[in-house]
Simulated assay, not measured.
Amino acid sequence: MSVTPPPPVGPDHDPWIGLEPTVSRRYVTVVVAALSTILLTIVAFLMPVPYATLEPGPVFNTLGEFNGEPMLTVEGDVQTYPTDGALDFTTVSVTGPDGRLSFTEALWAWFDPDVKLVPMDFLYPDGETAEESDARSAAQLASSKDSSTVAALRALDYEVPEQVSVADVAEDGASADVLEAGDVILSVDGTAVSTPQQAIDVVSTVSPGDPVTLVIDREGAQQELSITTRPAEEDPEVPRIGVSLASTFDLPVQIDNNVGDSVGGPSAGTMFALAIYDLLTPGSLTGGQRVAGTGEITPDGEVGPIGGVRQKMAGANADDAEVFLVPAGNCAEAADGDDFGMTIVKITTLDDAISSLEKLAADPDAKVPTCS
């Protein structure tokens, strides 16, 4: 038997010596690349993205209480009637202007059918701050309260006169030191006006730089004032007098809307109006059902589209609503998904909503306008 001697060892003879550095560098390169990929992936998933989410928010029964007191109260010697069921206004929870949505959160939102992902500047144009957003929402809510009250009273055949008032005067505008906030505009260049649009239309008939004559009421005293128009910043061909206008109403019935500042925006107007109508008429408009809905409303009872209708439907479903009122302008979006087993009613006016609810109160299977 022969024995083969072991191979010589040493730097000149070890077969692994020459390979060791090469394997080590390759291994380190692979590990570093893998760790870098993992780290970059983690960073990417945690990085904020310029998007916001719209999610189902809470619902509030306009026939019930808000923060421990009735949401709607009627002042004075006016007959009100008991009712039942619910008329819920729906809300949407949105990412605030200072919020930072991560890529992971945006990805989850993308696949959630009840959540809508939108560009941040869609909700907050021109870098709007949280304070500015809150102020805008509060102003929209205040206008919605007024419009809903007027619409409901007019649906009840009350006469509700309207006037044009000056809401704000631009400090460097054409009306600075001439008009004051609270002035009521009675006529423009001899034409009587009772709505902001009428006043705007008359001013628009002159050329920028031409004067217009306004008759106003200031604290009960009438005055005639001349204002020289100026070109609008967005269009030099359009005349402006440098004021913001609003409608004021002489209400025959005083309705107090006790919704606080925890909600905002104009979209509860239709449900406010329905609740006021229900309180001032005999019987139950809901027929005992839980009715939810949304829609901006004008003083004349026109119902306009709003945002986040799918999220509001999901919120209504979570509160066991049986009927959901949808502005006609939102019907396509409302029909693009689950109806959650609710009766989806299309409305274009307050009268539409009242008529449909009266039919459903008498017969839950009654045929009413729908979005399908």
Rank of each mutant, 00 (worst) to 15 (best):
V188F: 03
E171Q: 12
D168I: 02
G173D: 08
A176N: 12
A192L: 08
A181H: 01
E180S: 14
G182P: 05
D168P: 00
L179H: 03
D189C: 02
V193D: 01
D183S: 09
L179N: 05
E171I: 11
V184M: 04
A170T: 11
T195W: 09
S194K: 04
D168A: 12
T195P: 07
E180D: 10
D168W: 14
S194D: 13
D177V: 07
D172S: 15
D168N: 14
D183V: 10
V184W: 04
S187T: 12
A181Y: 05
G182E: 10
T195F: 08
L186H: 03
S175V: 07
V178Q: 08
V188P: 00
T195E: 08
V178I: 15
G173K: 01
A181K: 13
A167M: 13
D177P: 00
A181Q: 13
A174C: 05
G190P: 06
G173C: 10
T191W: 04
G190K: 03
S175M: 10
D168S: 13
A167P: 09
S194F: 11
L179C: 09
D168Q: 13
G190S: 10
A176R: 08
G182M: 01
D177A: 12
D177L: 11
I185C: 10
A170M: 14
S194N: 14
A176C: 00
A181C: 11
V169H: 05
V188H: 07
E180H: 11
A167T: 07
D183I: 01
A170W: 11
G182S: 06
A181V: 07
D183E: 06
L186N: 08
D189N: 15
L179T: 07
V193C: 00
E180V: 13
T191Q: 14
V178C: 07
T191A: 12
A192C: 01
I185E: 01
A176G: 05
A174W: 06
P196V: 10
E171C: 01
A192S: 12
I185A: 02
S187H: 00
V188A: 03
G182F: 10
D189K: 05
A181T: 15
D172H: 13
S194C: 03
S194E: 12
T191M: 07
V169F: 07
A170N: 10
A176K: 11
G182A: 08
D168F: 15
V169M: 03
L179Y: 02
D183R: 03
L186M: 03
I185W: 05
E180I: 02
P196H: 08
A167Y: 13
T195Q: 02
S175C: 11
A176H: 09
S175E: 10
D189S: 14
P196G: 12
V193S: 04
V178E: 09
S187R: 00
V169E: 01
E180A: 15
D172R: 14
E171T: 12
A167L: 14
G173R: 00
I185D: 04
S194H: 13
V184H: 02
D172P: 00
E171M: 02
A170F: 13
D189V: 04
G182H: 03
V184I: 15
V184L: 14
A167E: 14
D172G: 03
A192T: 15
V188D: 04
S175G: 11
G190D: 06
A176M: 05
A176V: 09
V169A: 05
D189M: 02
G182N: 06
